[in-house]
């Protein structure tokens, strides 16, 4: 096993740029971090999870579906180089695995999959959270994991792609696995109160123990800003629209959509199965904690915490789950 400092890693990512379109966490002028190319700013690996939806690399907010000129339809071309994304947390990688399955089951979504196929995902874990906070180690839903021990990043390959990447990395010092073992134990010892809370909320929903009044109460605090959906790494709803780009030329795009908007399910006839704020609020939580459990065998929330952080009125999924469990057990 090798351990790398940030300089080694920057050189390594540059070298891997021969094979990949590399995206790393970049420090922005306001002090926040966002995924970008190495030349776009100062790489900032430490600092915890990225603020924006990390899965947007593969499922962008707006994505060209095709361009049609007359009867000639040209689909979006696949990326010239596969993507390599550095900086997801272990939870983000679990979210990505959830999306992988969603976009690959039954009908296979080529727009997503052509970006995801042959791509590489590098998770950051260990003591690289905000102010050195311990980030949970990955469950293996990535190609390469860089575990920060407070001094260097230990490189842990989880796939053949990850092994190949590790071989091409520059610098690094051989190290024993004692440090990794210590970090793994620390990761396992992290509190799981929030997971238990979410599981309890999920059970309440699956057992139909949450009355409609609860959703009316929560929805009265929702301003339908849709920030929760836009930040959530597993939210995958989209709208489709056409944009005229010249005579007989049309671009068709898909664009993230939000189940919190009144028009989300409204039909042309006027019928709206989610015609109240309460029904829409219920849908946002119920879909992640109950519907996804029935359909996919797992919750659609991996406790990344983004919706709770961006919600201006404090009704992110953790806050709602807490309130639900306090009221109904």
């Amino acid at each position: 096993m090798k351990a790398y400092d940030e300089t080694d890693l920057a050189l390594s990512f540059q070298a891997l740029g021969a094979d990949y379109d590399v995206r790393v966490p970049i420090l922005l002028s306001d002090g926040t971090r966002s995924l970008g190319r190495l030349e776009e700013g100062k790489m900032a690996l430490a600092g915890g999870k990225l603020g924006a939806k990390p899965t947007s690399v593969f499922f962008p907010q707006m994505d060209l579906v095709f361009q049609q000129k007359g009867t000639n339809v040209r689909m979006q071309a696949p990326p010239s180089k596969p993507l390599m994304v550095v900086g997801l947390t272990a939870q983000d990688a679990d979210c990505l695995a959830f999306l992988d399955r969603f976009f690959s089951t039954n009908f296979k979504d080529d727009l997503y999959r052509q970006k995801r196929m042959n791509s590489a995902v590098v998770v950051l874990s260990g003591k690289c959270g905000r102010d050195g906070e311990m980030l949970r180690l990955s469950s293996g839903n990535c190609d390469l994991e860089l575990v920060f021990d407070g001094d260097r990043y230990l490189a842990l390959a989880h796939s053949q792609t990850g092994k190949a990447m590790a071989e091409k990395m520059k610098g690094g010092l051989e190290t024993d696995e004692i440090s990794l073992g210590r970090l793994q134990r620390e990761s396992k010892a992290l509190p799981d109160d929030e997971l238990k809370l979410l599981q309890r909320a999920s059970s309440l929903l699956l057992d139909n123990k949450v009355p409609e009044d609860f959703w009316v109460d929560i929805s009265n605090r929702c301003i339908a800003c849709t920030a929760c959906n836009l930040a959530c790494p597993t939210c995958n709803c989209f709208d489709v629209f056409d944009w005229k780009c010249g005579d007989s030329c049309v671009n068709r795009y898909r664009l993230w959509d939000s189940c919190q908007l009144d028009g989300f399910m409204r039909e042309a006839s006027g019928h709206n199965p989610m015609g109240t704020e309460a029904l829409r609020t219920r849908r946002r939580i119920h879909h992640k904690l109950a519907a996804d459990v029935i359909r996919w065998g797992q919750m659609g929330c991996f406790l990344c915490g983004r919706c709770d952080e961006v919600c201006p009125t404090g009704i992110g999924i953790k806050a709602v789950s807490r309130e639900m469990v306090e009221k109904y057990g």
Binding site: F102, F103, N106, F107, D109, N236, C237, F238, D239, V240, R254, D257, C259, F264, M265, R266, E267, A268, S269, H271, P273, R283, H286, H287, A290, A291, D292, I294, R295
Partner: peptide
């Protein structure tokens, strides 16, 4: 009858609980 954008179970507009 439901509002649908994609027709292939991806866009999310026509969900009925888990379906």
């Amino acid at each position: 009858e439901r509002y649908m954008k994609c027709g292939v179970g991806k866009c999310g507009h026509c969900t009925i609980e888990h379906l």
